[in-house]
Design a protein around this nucleic acid. Sequence first.
DNA 1: AAGAGTCTGTCCAAGTTTTGTTCACCAGTG
DNA 2: CACTGGTGAACAAAACTTGGACAGACTCTT
Lengths: 294, 294
Amino acid sequence: MSAMTTEPVRPAALLRIGELARRHNVSPDLLRVWERRYGLLSPERSAGGFRLYSSADDDRVGAMRRHLAQGYSAAVAARMVLDAPAAPPVADRDVALAEARAELGAALEAFLDVEAQGVIDRLLATFSVEVVLRDVVLPYVRSLGDRWEDGTLSVAQEHFASAVLRGRLLGLARGFDVGSGPRALLACPSDEHHDLGLLCFGIGLREHGWRITYLGADTPIDTLRDTAMRLDCAEREEPLRAVVREIAELSGTHRVALAGRGASVELAHGAGAGLLQDAPMAAAARVAAEAGRA
Amino acid sequence: MSAMTTEPVRPAALLRIGELARRHNVSPDLLRVWERRYGLLSPERSAGGFRLYSSADDDRVGAMRRHLAQGYSAAVAARMVLDAPAAPPVADRDVALAEARAELGAALEAFLDVEAQGVIDRLLATFSVEVVLRDVVLPYVRSLGDRWEDGTLSVAQEHFASAVLRGRLLGLARGFDVGSGPRALLACPSDEHHDLGLLCFGIGLREHGWRITYLGADTPIDTLRDTAMRLDCAEREEPLRAVVREIAELSGTHRVALAGRGASVELAHGAGAGLLQDAPMAAAARVAAEAGRA
DNA sequence: AAGAGTCTGTCCAAGTTTTGTTCACCAGTG
DNA sequence: CACTGGTGAACAAAACTTGGACAGACTCTT
C-alpha cells in the first residue's frame, strides 16, 4: 500500500470507544448499539473490561458510515459490511467501480474527508492505480467540472473535493523523477488552474517508467521553456491557447503536446505540437508506447 | 524557544526528573506514575536515589505525549512506545533542523523529487509534525516567496517546490474532519493562490484537536459564507482585502480571523474580524488554547 | 387515515476502571 | 538552609460498562 500516513507501524493500535467515536463523528452509544444489534464490531477488552478496537474495527465503522451515507438502512449497511470480506471477488468489476464513484462523490460533496479517503483506500487495495484513476477519479473530476458550470455544485464543494483528490494524487506522485526513462515536464499554462487531469496523466506516464517533473497549474510559457532547456527533458504537455508562437518555437527543440479542453487540431497544428485528444490515462499509455517504439 | 544554554544536550547527559518534566511540559509526578504503572521509563539512579534519565527516556516521553495527543489511552500509548524500536538519537536538534532546511531547499530547487521527499521522511521520523512544519517547511515556504519576488528563483522552481510540499501537507491532512473539537473552515479569498501557509495552520489546529474543512486557494467569499452556515462550523480564516463588507457580515454569526500578508490591523478591525499576526503554527496553538479556555 | 409494530439513534442511572493530581513525610543536593 | 526528589496512599475527574427506556421516523395493517 503506497499512500500511508506518517504512522510507521501500528499493529497494536487499540482505541477506546470514545476515541473511535470521535474519529468517525459518531456517538459511543451508537457504536455499542451497532455491536449489540448487528455484531458489527468485536473489540478486545482491557483487563478492566473497556472495549479496545483494532484498526479492522475502525475500517468497519468507516464502511458502515459510507453505506449509511448512501442511504442504506443501518441493518442492511451492517450486513453489507460483515459480508464484505466474502464479497471482494466482486461479482462485477464495473459495478464495483461505479458504486465507488458514487460513494466517493457522495462523501466529497458532503465534506466527509474520512469517508472519501476510505473509498480511495479500498479502491487502491483492490485495483491498480491506473484503473482507479481512469475509471473513478478522472470521471469524477470531469463531472465536478460539469456540475460546477451548471451551478449544481457549490464552489466550496468543488474546492474541497479538489483538495482531497489533489492530496491523494500528489501522494501517488512520490518518486516522480525516479528511474531512467524519458523525462516529461508537465504544466498547465498561465491562468489555467485545473491541474488534476494533468496530474493523472503524469501518474499514468510514471507507471510506464517515465520520469516526471511536475510544475502544476498556472505556469507561464517562458519559465516552461527555460526549465525544458535546463532539464534534459524531452517532452511536455499542456492545455491552451494563445501562446502558440512560443509553443511553436519550443517544439523546434522539444517534443510538445497539447491537451485538454482548450486544445484543438488547428491550435496544435499551428504550433507544430502534438495533440492528446484521448483520455489522460489512455494518452499516457499511448505516448509511452510510441516513445518506446522510437 | 529553549534558551537553556546551560547544557548542549550531550547524548550522555542525564536529566533529573524536574528537568525532564519541564522539557515536556508534564508534571514530575506523572512521569513517576508512568514509570510505576506502565514501565515506560527505566532511569538510572544517583547515589542518593534520584532518577537520572537518558535521552532515550526523553524520546520515550515525547513519543508517549504524541500518542496521547492522537487520542490513544495512556496504557495503550505506553505499550506502543515500548513496542516501537527506539530511534537513534539526534546530536543537536537545531543544527539538524537547519541542515534539513538547506537540504530540502537544494533538492527542491534542483527539481529532485526523491531527495526532497527523503529529507521530509527523515524529519517526520525524528521530529513531531509541528516542529517540522514550524522550523523547516514554513521558513522555507517564506523564503520561496521572498526569492520569487527577487527573481532569484524561477517560477518553475517555485511551482515545483510548491507542488511537492503541497502533496506532503495534504497527506498530513488526512482525517482533517475527524473528532469532536470545534470546526474551522479554512480558505484563501479570491485570487489568492498561496495556500501552503493556511494548510500548515490547519494541520497545527488539527494537532490541537480541531476539525478542519479545507477549501484551499481562491475561494469566493460568498461560497465561504454558505458553507460556514451549512456546516456547524464556528471559525474561519483567510488572508485579504476588499471583501471587507462581506467579512463584517459573516463575523456577526461566525468567528472570523484574517491572516497573511494582506491582512492588517485596520482591515481586521474594519471587518470586525480577528487578526492572526504570529507564525501559523504559533497561531494555531494560541487559537486552540483560547478556544479551550472559553 | 388511524393504529400497531419496527427500526434506529439517544438518554439514563448506578457502578467500575483509568488516569492525572495531591498529600504527608522523609531524604538527597548544593 | 532552601530546594528538589522519593514513596505510597488517597483522591477526584473523566471515561466506560450494562441494561433498559424512549422518541421520531418508517412501514404495514386494518
